[in-house]
């Protein structure tokens, strides 16, 4: 069982207030892992910390047993859709083509083969005929699929996705899930911050329950339990959860946990 991502004592702080606290996490290769937790739990930050996009206060992360710098080309990141400028003059194919930039490096232009790969990836997500459509004219679901295609174009071994199913229609959601499973079945690893507790069992193999600190991690069948969910979402706390010096946890939503596990 190879570990694609290994985090040890990972701590990330913002203005000296902890966002991630002392995490020990292993992500297994060839599986689909969900990162789950309430708002403010640090889920997006975890992805960014692994990618080296935010400064780390303490601890280490290793990807493919190396530093992120060394293996950047093997990792594809699909950020939340909010960070993009939708008025940008570009079409769907162009966006997917940007996925090839990492491989090209500075100064080189995308070539014929890059363009072919981009078109192929668009086809794979069912957006092949939208290649020349302006991105501002696409629906939420279509946009998400284009970004997925961009990730595929990177031909990575590890896919990190931040809430890929938000704002997406049911049909697109099913298509994306199918795609993620295909990717996983071909031996790649998928890690996704996931917002919808109901679908975790169906979509993912492993889950990481996060609320600033690590609550639990492992195969969904073992770890995705009522107890663990309660602890994650701040139900009645248990003494062994509190460690000296541990920070307050995020989210005090009283989620009817039982209802979610039906």
């Amino acid at each position: 069982m190879t570990h694609v991502i290994e985090a040890r004592d990972l701590t990330v702080a913002y203005h000296e207030s902890p966002v991630l606290w002392d995490l020990d996490i292993d992500i297994v290769e060839g599986r689909a892992t969900a990162i789950v937790g309430p708002n403010g739990a640090g889920k997006s930050t975890l992805l960014k910390a692994i990618l080296g996009l935010v400064p780390i206060a303490a601890g280490t992360t290793r990807v493919f047993n190396a530093s992120m710098q060394q293996v950047r080309q093997r990792v594809a990141y699909v950020p939340q859709r909010g960070s993009v400028d939708w008025d940008f003059p570009t079409d769907a194919l162009d966006v997917v083509l940007m996925g090839r930039y990492g491989r090209l490096g500075w100064f080189r232009r995308p070539g014929r083969s890059d363009r072919d790969i981009a078109q192929e990836c668009l086809d794979r997500v069912g957006m092949g005929s939208f290649a020349n459509r302006q991105i501002s004219q696409l629906s939420g679901g279509q946009q998400q699929r284009v970004f997925l295609a961009r990730a595929l174009a990177q031909q990575a071994d590890l896919y990190l996705m931040d809430e890929p199913f938000v704002g997406v229609d049911a049909v697109t959601e099913r298509a994306i899930v199918q795609l993620l499973h295909d990717v996983r079945d071909s031996g790649k690893t998928v890690v996704a911050v996931h917002h919808d507790l109901e679908s975790v069992r169906e979509y993912f193999d492993d889950v990481v329950l996060l609320n600033v600190g690590l609550i639990a991690a492992g195969p969904v069948a073992e770890v995705f339990t009522e107890d663990n969910l309660r602890r994650t979402y701040h139900g009645p706390t248990r003494p062994d959860m509190d460690r000296p010096g541990a920070p307050a946890r995020a989210g005090s939503e009283m989620v009817p946990v039982e209802a979610l596990l039906r």
Partner: peptide, 20 residues
Amino acid sequence: VRARQRRSFLQDLLVAHIGA
């Protein structure tokens, strides 16, 4: 302020780590 906070924060980390 940042220096002060950082110092206390690192201390917290250390203690938490040991406690764990």
